[in-house]
């Protein structure tokens, strides 16, 4: 099982992703943003950070990086792609995921630990979880306030594309549990097929008990198991 972690100029969770994936027991390699091939990887990770300084809008410039054409192709092929934090923003800008990010309500950067509820298990990254499971994961972002127009939002909910929702310790998606103002407490979504997932929380920061938690391992373990099973999404996996 080999993950490819794409490094954009300004990515800063690239090394953390690689280290976490290795700690969970899989291989990971960096893919430089100027590379044009992503062949040979079982899963692609777009890590967090400030690609291109977040100038213009987070993710708005990175989507034009040379590597992105092959990422789009890889995703269209039904293979697993995950964007974490800034990686999520890039996937939104690239049109691989629906919706957009706004500045957090209150405008400040927020670094904290939050709970998210698993809303869908049909994605490779949550296939090893159960619906309703609550994970505790770190967040660290200034632009994580998820937005989609009413029609898109309704479609997302209807098709089960909401993957993670901010919630309290009981698993309830209350307004108090929403750290950044995201619509419907959305912390992560998938594309219609389910193989492309974006999430604001950082699973790679929750893969070792000494760093405060291990719930993040389930994301990487799920996709590894899914790849091992040889499933392609789009066939109701």
């Amino acid at each position: 099982m080999k993950f490819g972690v794409i490094v954009f100029p300004g990515s800063n969770c690239d090394r953390d992703c690689r280290n976490a994936i290795e700690a969970v027991g899989f291989d990971a390699e960096f893919i430089w943003h100027r590379d044009t091939s992503v062949a040979g990887y079982d899963c692609l990770v777009l890590p967090g950070g400030y690609s291109y300084g977040d100038y213009l809008r987070p993710g708005a410039i990175a989507r034009f990086s040379p590597v992105m054409d092959s990422v789009v192709e890889y995703a269209r092929d039904g293979r697993p792609v995950i964007g974490i934090c800034n990686g999520f923003q890039i996937l939104l800008e690239a049109g691989l995921l629906p919706g957009a990010m706004q500045r957090n309500v209150g405008t400040r950067f927020i670094c904290d630990r939050v709970r998210v509820r698993i809303e869908s298990t049909r994605t490779p990254f949550t296939s090893g979880c159960r619906e309703g499971d609550v994970l505790t994961l770190p967040i660290a972002h200034a632009d994580g306030n998820y937005y989609a127009d009413p029609q898109t939002l309704a479609e997302l909910e209807e098709r089960g594309q909401v993957v993670f929702r901010y919630c309290n310790e009981l698993g309830d998606a209350t307004p108090e549990a929403n750290p950044n103002g995201s619509l419907n407490n959305i912390a992560g979504v998938s594309n219609e097929a389910g193989n492309v997932v974006g999430m604001m929380p950082h699973p790679e920061r929750a893969c070792e008990a000494i760093l405060g938690g291990t719930d993040g391992r389930r994301i990487f373990e799920s996709v590894a198991e899914w790849v091992r099973g040889g499933v392609r999404v789009g066939q109701d996996g």
């Binding site: 800063n12 950067f109 660290a140 000494i210």
Partner: peptide
């Protein structure tokens, strides 16, 4: 104050 700082990037903060 520190909620506005990324305290964990680098995955080394114990």
């Amino acid at each position: 104050v520190y909620r506005q700082y990324d305290q964990q990037v680098g995955a080394g903060t114990v």
